[in-house]
Design a protein around this nucleic acid. Structure first.
Lengths: 212, 212
DNA sequence: ACACAAATGCAACTAGTAGTGCATTAAGGA
DNA sequence: TCCTTAATGCACTACTAGTTGCATTTGTGT
């Protein structure tokens, strides 16, 4: 086996992006995510994706040599406009809305499947980076909300913003993937209120924003 | 394929637990966890476990018909004395120690592999229950610590204990499995302090302790 | 419209894994 | 010690992943 990255694709040297290739690409990506949701990561086979997409196995193998690379490409292709960053200025309300959106994602079949798939390939540097990148963007949305509201009143939020964001988002993941407890409205509200009640001390650890 | 549970084992009707069977059992469990750490869940094959254990594949297939069941049995077999529940009475110190122990688990190869394996089989009721059971016990240890300290001074901890525990443990998981940020000492200390600083209001959501 | 080449389809092949019937070994009781 | 049978080992089949050579289709520039 040649020493290529497990998530390598043919895309960088694609010379015919139009017409048939575009149709194939879309059909394969749609089929990939559909099968990922219905079968889960490990049970997903290239064969089943090919059949669902109305495409030959060989085509998929040539364009996306590995399962992880295929799912990663399909996920990236669909990762747009998933988040509404614009806040009303009411910090608590905006954070509840943000966490509700994240909660919907991590409880949705596609969100759960993608998180689990990314963890199943935790050793693949590209997969790891893609996952951390995805959440880095979401964290940035939270930073924007808090930053906007901080100018409008709430003090003591300067130093510990990243820690605050962690304390907001983390309980959602714990319930969604570990304990299985429900992510309902009251839980989200209480999580936001608890996080906001913590006085911003100077002793906060700066979370590693490079997520290395 | 008969409609048996994917994690069924032969154990309940085992009639010869001594001698050879015991040796096989131990060898298989050790090999299973070793391969799980080195290869990961999806790449783990029964064949590789059998070779590592010096046992025939057939033996494994008959005793533990599925990969998930095998790993689950191996994990249960080793899930003893992983936790030190006894506290000193100093709540903050005890919680830091507890979180440090959890942090070591979720960053260790075996802990990571087990969490990921349990998520890869999220649809299997037995796997889900085993995972939730495991963490329920750890949460109980935290409850004991807090309960002991609560009698000794700290008030306002009665109602929101479960929420507090969630806010203690959750950031560890977020960093370990999502963002990849480090789980160092300062981070753990700050997590404990932030959680303890939250005034215990009456508005807390009772987390579903059945973890359904 | 035509030609060239890229991209896909097809078929055959290798390799490796899951799973099963039958023979063999050895545990536990008499 | 000997006998029964539970437990294990061996040999085999079936299936799936993944690869390759070649034919076919189809973009794209001329």
């Amino acid at each position: 086996m040649p020493s290529r990255s497990p998530t390598a694709t043919r895309e960088p040297i694609a010379k015919r992006p139009g017409g048939r290739s575009a149709r194939v690409r879309r059909a394969v990506f749609d089929a990939t995510l559909a099968r990922l949701v219905s079968d889960g990561y490990q049970a997903l086979t290239i064969e089943s994706v090919a059949v669902a997409a109305g495409v030959n196995r060989t085509t998929i193998y040539r364009n996306w040599p590995t399962k992880a690379g295929l799912i990663l490409a399909a996920a990236k292709d669909r990762s747009e406009a998933l988040i509404s960053t614009k806040g009303s200025g009411d910090l608590e309300r905006d954070l509840v809305a943000l966490l509700t959106s994240v909660a919907e994602y991590v409880t949705s079949p596609i969100g759960r499947a993608l998180v689990i798939a990314s963890l199943s390939e935790a050793d693949d540097p590209e997969v790891r980076e893609a996952r951390e990148d995805f959440w880095r963007h979401r964290f940035q949305a939270a930073r924007d909300l808090i930053g906007a509201a901080a100018g409008g009143g709430s003090s003591s939020l300067d130093a510990g913003v990243d820690g605050l964001i962690e304390r907001l988002i983390a309980p959602l993941f714990l319930r969604a993937f570990i304990t299985g407890a429900p992510l309902d409205g009251p839980f989200i509200r209480d999580t936001v209120r608890a996080a906001l009640r913590v006085p911003g001390s100077g002793g906060e650890t700066k979370p590693d924003t490079t997520m290395g």
